[in-house]
Design a protein around this nucleic acid. Structure first.
Lengths: 157, 157
DNA sequence: TATTGTTATACTCTATAACTATA
DNA sequence: TATAGTTATAGAGTATAACAATA
């Protein structure tokens, strides 16, 4: 019988993961706010760097963002000068989204922010504990089919 | 120098926590959907059981939900017969929110769903790994000031 | 005057459908 | 006809202000 009072129950690990994940996402959003971008922008930046000349639809599918929403996000980022829309030469229906120099710079700043965020968030744990946590999370993520480096928070389910 | 390709980076533990936390929250929402309730409803149910005769404002503050939103949520739950609004005898401005029999039954079903969710979500790990993960998450949650059993996902920051 | 609950309103994000231009 | 991008629109959720009843 687990220890319990009549008034509260100790939360399980899944609930703790929900709490921590929400908190981590919130802190990351605060970290990148000074860069003028939001978490969806950050996801797009990283994916555009990974997949050069990617179409908007592919980006939308990979990130779980609706195409109609992607239009707005790309508009915002193009307006900030972070990326350019170029019509594909082979199929002029779709665009090839490319990083500008400023976009690449913002990506680098975002990755530095992510690294600092990671360090700070895990600082209560010893280096050994951090490694253990990471390994266990990787094992869980693999079994749950989570894509490498793609935030599932933009999905429509 | 960490292992990396030119195309991708291994995500840090904080990012993994965000992924897993989002996924866990989504699965929990799916689990309780057959009970006719959403995650905010679940949070209210648990808090109402913990704090009898609680006012709407106290519930809103504890859960990080705006008072104006709390009105709608309590309306929905009262409409389902899960709880009742009773005017306080001592201060007739505020209500005392009380669980009905059906509300208590739904709470019990929700707690069973949470336990099953926890078991399923952690099933890729061995019992020892599960205990280790839970301990590390508890340590992190304590250092980050996360309230016992209160989902931070309803907060306005 | 301050507080509880409530309503009204605006803004964002999600979701669907319809439109355009290309193929 | 099918697809990429876009626009329009409706529905949640978040946030702020203002209001009525009560203290």
């Amino acid at each position: 019988m687990p220890p319990s009072s009549s008034e509260s129950r100790a939360p399980g690990a899944a609930f703790l993961l929900t709490q921590l994940g929400t908190q981590a996402a919130r802190r990351f959003a605060e970290r990148i706010e000074p860069l003028g971008i939001t978490p969806p922008h950050a996801g797009i930046l990283r994916l555009v760097a990974m997949i050069p000349d990617c179409s908007q639809q592919k980006l939308a599918t990979r990130l779980g963002i609706l195409p109609s929403r992607m239009v707005v996000l790309i508009d915002e980022m193009a307006g900030q000068g972070l990326l350019d829309r170029r019509r594909s030469a082979t199929d002029r229906r779709n665009y090839e989204i490319v990083l500008t120099d400023k976009g690449a710079e913002t990506l680098a700043n975002m990755q530095r922010a992510a690294a600092a965020h990671d360090t700070d968030f895990l600082t209560p744990l010893t280096p050994e504990e951090q490694q253990t946590l990471k390994s266990l999370c990787e094992k869980l993520a693999a079994h749950h089919g989570l894509a490498q480096g793609v935030h599932p928070g933009y999905k429509h389910l």
